[in-house]
């Protein structure tokens, strides 16, 4: 069952990355990156159990915190840009 859940999480991560590449606006991409980070936390937990190494959970906790800080940082940056920038098509501001 853990293997099934791991495969499902990997599929969701592929979908999130697809949305991050396709996403028409900047915010779709940030949303996809945020979702990818959350799924990474779950994937780390599952992998820890799959390999029998619960130490992975510590890494998962740290990753959850880093994910929040990175998303908040990107949002503060995009807030600082102000409303002068059109968000619909922004090819040069493609965050990874």
């Amino acid at each position: 069952m853990i293997a099934v859940a791991t495969i499902a999480i990997l599929v969701v991560m592929i979908l999130a990355i697809t949305r991050g590449i396709v996403g028409p606006t900047l915010y779709d991409r940030i949303l996809a990156v945020n979702m990818f980070g959350t799924k990474t936390v779950l994937l780390l937990s599952l992998l820890g159990f799959l390999m029998g190494r619960p130490e992975f959970l510590d890494i998962a906790i740290v990753y959850a915190l880093i994910n929040f800080i990175s998303v908040t940082g990107i949002l503060r940056y995009s807030d600082a840009l102000g409303s002068t920038v059109s968000v619909d098509e922004k090819p040069e501001k493609k965050e990874s």
């Binding site: 959350t38 936390v41 998962a60 906790i61 915190l65 908040t72 807030d79 920038v85």
Partner: peptide, 28 residues
């Protein structure tokens, strides 16, 4: 540790969603 991860997820994600939606709406 699993409970901690769950609590962090449940506390952090609404905040991130709200910040994202607010930034999106304020940037028209």
């Amino acid at each position: 540790k699993l409970i901690l991860i769950l609590l962090l997820t449940l506390f952090i994600n609404p905040t991130a969603s709200h910040a994202l939606a607010k930034a999106a709406l304020h940037n028209n």
